[in-house]
């Protein structure tokens, strides 16, 4: 449903919105907001990229 990253270079060719955050705190806030707005689950790819999915 959405991808949140600090480094846009880590995400390529995807069909869903990518949100770029400036720093870690803002990224976590963005992830939480998107998860609650979209009703999805947050998954941490552990490379600084978070994805929000609907299961």
């Amino acid at each position: 449903m959405a991808i949140v990253t600090q480094d846009p270079g880590l995400v390529q060719g995807c069909g869903c919105p990518v949100f770029v955050a400036n720093e870690s705190g803002q990224q976590k806030r963005l992830v939480l907001m998107l998860a609650r707005i979209l009703g999805g689950n947050v998954h941490d790819l552990e490379n600084g990229v978070f994805i929000i999915c609907k299961h």
Partner: peptide
Amino acid sequence: GALLKVADVPMMNVGLKAA
């Protein structure tokens, strides 16, 4: 990391620290 495990069984990836 973000991977929830019960004993040695991987369950799911939990991205939110609060969760």
